[in-house]
Write a protein that binds this DNA or RNA. Structure first.
Lengths: 193, 193
DNA sequence: TGGCGATGTATCGGACCGATACATCGGGTG
DNA sequence: CACCCGATGTATCGGTCCGATACATCGCCA
């Protein structure tokens, strides 16, 4: 997943890890908490080894010539996507299996929707909707069965979850409708004040 | 985290792993996706080794006497919390560090709110609110800075995330108000139709 | 000048997921 | 009545990702 997200962000512009992490956290942040360096850097190395990105020494990273690196002189590294990386990105973006409908994966795919065709977008939106609807039904059933048997807080937690599901389904349905009518999300219907 | 969740569920009643997983998935499901056996069983073993739960052979699990186990004859196992386990549960439930305000941990703590005192509840609710507010501000700032510069889908994703944050903050504020007035969540104000 | 917060790269242990294997049992269908 | 299928049930393995931590530089302000 990180792989797709990183390639997509580097497609917009080259940058170093620190900036990458910031954008990963805020840009795609709706369905994921925060990316840690513990996953970022190993993934970057893997991407480089696969030939999908390159690492270049950034601006003032020049090693100070005769100064022997006490620990290890690390310079800034600018990561850049390669032609093969762009192909890989499109390949990952297009393949929409069942795991694409899970929270994180869906969020990442959605963020790069403008790079795909309408058919793929609809497929993913509808798959995600089905997934959230299943979850919603599960919660509804649990609530109707468990009411009275559970304490007030557990009940309230389930209600909150149910509410979030219903809300997301509505959101997805609006997006699907917009998509079918050939529009872009933004202010299509005019229900946002 | 799993540790607290498992102990809490076993406090309600003893059960085997399968049932445990189901309840973990639906009961505490608002802030977490689904628990996998890959984390459940190792955790159960760890809990048993620590003496916080016991494993007992369930009903019809009796080994068929002379039938040699071809692969390995596994019986049903009923997991049960011990006295030390109950202490451990209270200990885990009461300690509310910064990590308690993250999605998963908050959800688990909230589910067992009825086992804590009001002071702890308020501390956790307010900590969570602060956390979500930070996230909300980050998204607001990103949106106001990035508008026009980003494509429609990324923007829509951020708007959706912002909306979810605002909604949760409102939810938390209602809970905090209810808590301060000494009530229980349910139908306090009467804003749920 | 001295510290402190933002920027920046990197590793390690551990938590958790996803797929898979294996096994039993009840019910429906040919 | 035989057979298969889906629900129930225990368990492991590889891999992804997190959280804490270490280390280093730079600009700013007291």
């Amino acid at each position: 997943m990180l792989e797709l997200a990183i390639l997509g962000l580097l497609l917009r512009s080259s940058m170093h890890g620190y900036e990458l992490r910031k954008q990963l956290t805020t840009n795609l942040g709706a369905f994921r908490a925060a990316i840690s360096y513990g996953s970022l850097y190993p993934t970057l190395r893997r991407l480089r080894e696969a030939g999908w990105i390159t690492e270049e020494a950034g601006a003032e990273a020049a090693t100070p010539a005769e100064v022997p690196p006490l620990t290890s002189r690390r310079g800034r590294v600018v990561y850049k996507i390669t032609a093969e990386g762009k192909e890989r990105f499109q390949e990952l973006l297009a393949q929409a299996g069942p795991e694409t409908y899970e929270d994180t994966a869906f969020g990442v795919h959605f963020a790069f929707f403008s790079r795909t065709d309408q058919a793929t977008r609809l497929r993913i939106l509808e798959g995600r909707r089905r997934r959230v609807e299943e979850r919603r039904e599960g919660l509804r059933e649990a609530l109707s069965r468990a009411a009275e048997r559970l304490d007030a807080y557990t009940l309230e937690l389930q209600r909150h979850g149910l509410d979030a599901c219903e809300r997301e389904v509505r959101w997805l349905e609006e997006l699907i409708a917009t998509e079918r009518s050939g529009g872009q999300p933004g202010q299509p219907g005019g229900h946002r004040p």
